[in-house]
Simulated scan of single mutants.
Amino acid sequence: MSTSRAARLKPVIEMAEKAERDAARQLGAVQTQLLQAEGKLGDLQRYCADYQNQMVAQGQQGVSGQWLMNYQRFLSQLDTAIAQQQRNVDWHRGNADKVRTTWQERYARLEGLRKLVERYLYEARMAEDRREQRQLDELAARLTARKNEST
């Protein structure tokens, strides 16, 4: 009886496995997007630091007011780009957290179903063992009864 219960769960487990695989695949894609966004942010931050170092070097040689205004304008644009990319990274991080939670839920559901099937199979084995033991006990009792009748 328990074996049939386990067999009836097979399509459910297959669907749960597919859902878990899909969630894992989506998590991988989202994590890749997050890494790319973090890479772009790092590139922008390094570029900004390099640009500031160049300004310091140029400033030691003397600069015009126009050059300084252009520098400040460009630095402001870089700061805006960095802030925008930071928001992008934060969004990707939040999205990755949501997708990870979904994957964890699907994985936990799958594992729960697998444990249920294992329990059903264990119960079926135990019931079969008890049935076999009863048959052996009955056979032994009949043999003992026959032996006693013969003597």
Rank of each mutant, 00 (worst) to 15 (best):
M1A: 12
S2F: 15
S2A: 12
T3Y: 10
T3F: 14
T3W: 05
S4Y: 08
R5S: 03
A7C: 02
R8E: 10
L9P: 02
V12P: 00
V12G: 09
V12N: 00
I13V: 13
E14S: 14
M15T: 11
M15H: 13
M15P: 05
A16K: 09
A16C: 04
A16F: 05
A16D: 03
E17V: 11
K18Q: 10
K18W: 05
A19G: 04
A19Y: 03
A19N: 09
A19K: 06
E20A: 14
R21M: 07
R21E: 06
D22M: 12
D22Q: 11
A24F: 14
A29I: 12
V30K: 01
Q31P: 03
Q31H: 00
Q36I: 11
Q36W: 10
A37C: 03
A37D: 00
G39W: 01
G39N: 07
D43N: 05
D43M: 03
L44F: 00
R46I: 06
A49M: 01
A49L: 03
Q52Y: 07
N53Y: 00
Q54Y: 14
Q54D: 11
A57E: 08
A57G: 09
G59M: 06
Q60V: 07
Q61P: 09
G62M: 09
G62L: 09
G65V: 05
Q66E: 10
W67I: 04
W67D: 04
M69R: 14
M69S: 10
Y71S: 05
Y71P: 02
Y71W: 13
Y71G: 04
F74P: 04
S76V: 00
L78M: 11
D79G: 15
D79M: 15
Q85T: 00
Q86P: 07
N88L: 14
W91L: 12
H92I: 01
A96L: 05
D97V: 10
D97A: 15
R100H: 08
R100D: 05
T101R: 03
T102Q: 15
W103V: 06
W103K: 15
Q104W: 01
E105I: 02
R106P: 07
Y107D: 08
L110H: 09
E111Y: 06
G112L: 05
L113E: 04
L113S: 02
K115M: 06
K115I: 02
L116I: 05
E123F: 15
E123C: 06
R125D: 00
R125S: 00
R125H: 00
E128N: 14
D129M: 11
R130Q: 09
R131C: 02
R131G: 04
E132A: 14
E132L: 14
E132S: 11
E132Y: 13
Q135K: 13
L136F: 12
L139R: 03
A141S: 15
R142F: 13
R142P: 07
R146F: 03
K147W: 13
N148V: 13
E149W: 11
T151Y: 10
